[in-house]
Amino acid sequence: RRKSKRKPPPKKKMTGTLETQFTCPFCNHEKSCDVKMDRARNTGVISCTVCLEEFQTPITYLSEPVDVYSDWIDACE
């Protein structure tokens, strides 16, 4: 008699959501930077609500707010 092989359980999909508020690289306030994605103009704007620092970068249809933040961090270095 042959043993029946069980199929492995399906893999769980990533359910965690990406951050939309970030720590400002200038004033170091946590969750003080908000990202606005202007898909019509293909630009992402991130601004700090505390020190009013602002950064704008081009985006694509695949871009997420975390991509705008990482572009800002890269531009600071």
Score class of each variant (00 low, 15 high):
R1E: 02
R1W: 01
R1A: 06
R2M: 06
K3F: 05
S4N: 08
S4V: 10
S4M: 14
K5A: 05
K5I: 07
K5E: 15
R6E: 15
R6C: 03
R6F: 06
R6L: 08
K7Y: 01
K7I: 08
P8L: 07
P8C: 15
P8Q: 13
P9T: 11
P9Q: 15
P9D: 14
P9E: 09
P9G: 12
P9C: 06
P9V: 15
P9W: 07
P10H: 03
P10I: 09
P10G: 07
P10R: 04
P10E: 06
K11W: 01
K11A: 07
K11F: 07
K11H: 02
K12A: 10
K12C: 03
K12N: 10
K12F: 06
K12G: 10
K12E: 03
K13F: 07
K13C: 10
K13M: 11
M14I: 15
M14G: 06
G16E: 06
G16Y: 06
G16R: 10
G16I: 04
G16W: 05
T17V: 10
T17C: 07
T17R: 06
T17I: 15
T17A: 08
L18D: 08
L18I: 14
E19P: 05
E19M: 09
E19T: 05
E19A: 11
E19R: 11
T20M: 14
T20L: 15
T20V: 09
T20D: 11
Q21L: 11
Q21I: 04
Q21E: 11
Q21T: 14
F22W: 10
F22M: 14
F22G: 05
T23D: 06
T23P: 11
T23L: 12
T23E: 09
C24Y: 00
C24T: 01
P25R: 11
P25I: 04
P25L: 06
P25A: 03
F26N: 13
F26R: 14
C27H: 00
C27W: 00
C27V: 00
C27F: 00
C27Q: 00
N28V: 03
N28A: 13
H29G: 13
H29Q: 05
H29P: 02
E30V: 11
E30K: 11
E30S: 07
E30D: 11
K31F: 04
K31H: 14
K31S: 12
K31N: 15
S32T: 13
S32A: 10
S32M: 10
S32L: 09
D34I: 12
D34T: 09
D34S: 11
V35M: 06
V35P: 04
V35E: 04
V35C: 01
V35T: 04
V35H: 00
V35K: 01
V35A: 07
K36P: 01
K36F: 09
K36A: 15
K36Q: 04
K36N: 04
M37A: 02
M37R: 02
M37N: 01
M37T: 01
M37L: 06
D38P: 00
D38Y: 05
D38G: 02
D38T: 03
D38A: 03
D38S: 03
R39E: 09
R39A: 06
R39Y: 07
R39F: 07
R39L: 08
R39W: 07
R39C: 02
A40E: 13
A40K: 15
A40L: 06
A40H: 07
A40D: 07
R41D: 12
R41E: 10
R41Q: 11
R41M: 04
N42A: 13
N42V: 06
N42Q: 10
N42S: 14
N42M: 12
T43W: 05
T43M: 07
T43I: 14
T43G: 05
G44V: 00
G44W: 03
G44Q: 02
V45C: 15
V45D: 09
V45A: 09
S47P: 01
S47G: 11
C48D: 03
C48P: 02
C48Y: 00
C48W: 00
T49E: 12
T49N: 14
T49M: 05
T49Y: 12
T49G: 11
V50R: 13
V50C: 10
C51R: 00
C51L: 00
L52T: 15
L52M: 11
L52A: 15
L52R: 12
L52I: 06
E53R: 11
E53Y: 02
E53M: 05
E53G: 07
F55Q: 00
F55T: 02
F55L: 04
F55W: 10
Q56L: 07
Q56Y: 04
Q56W: 03
T57K: 15
T57I: 06
P58E: 06
P58D: 08
P58R: 09
P58N: 05
P58W: 06
I59S: 02
I59P: 02
I59C: 06
I59Q: 03
T60W: 03
T60Y: 06
T60H: 09
T60N: 13
T60A: 07
T60C: 01
Y61N: 14
Y61H: 05
Y61I: 06
Y61S: 09
Y61A: 15
Y61T: 14
Y61Q: 15
Y61F: 15
Y61L: 11
Y61C: 12
L62C: 07
L62K: 13
L62H: 06
L62F: 04
L62S: 12
S63R: 05
S63D: 05
S63K: 14
S63E: 08
S63V: 05
E64G: 09
E64R: 11
P65Y: 07
P65F: 04
P65G: 06
P65S: 07
P65H: 06
V66M: 13
V66A: 10
D67F: 02
D67A: 07
D67T: 10
D67P: 03
D67I: 01
V68K: 02
V68W: 01
V68C: 08
V68Q: 04
V68E: 00
Y69N: 01
S70P: 01
S70I: 03
S70N: 03
D71H: 14
D71T: 10
D71N: 06
D71Q: 07
D71G: 12
D71Y: 04
W72E: 01
W72R: 02
W72L: 04
W72M: 04
W72S: 02
W72G: 02
I73K: 15
I73H: 08
D74H: 12
A75Q: 13
A75N: 09
A75P: 01
A75G: 11
A75S: 09
C76H: 05
C76G: 09
C76V: 13
E77D: 12
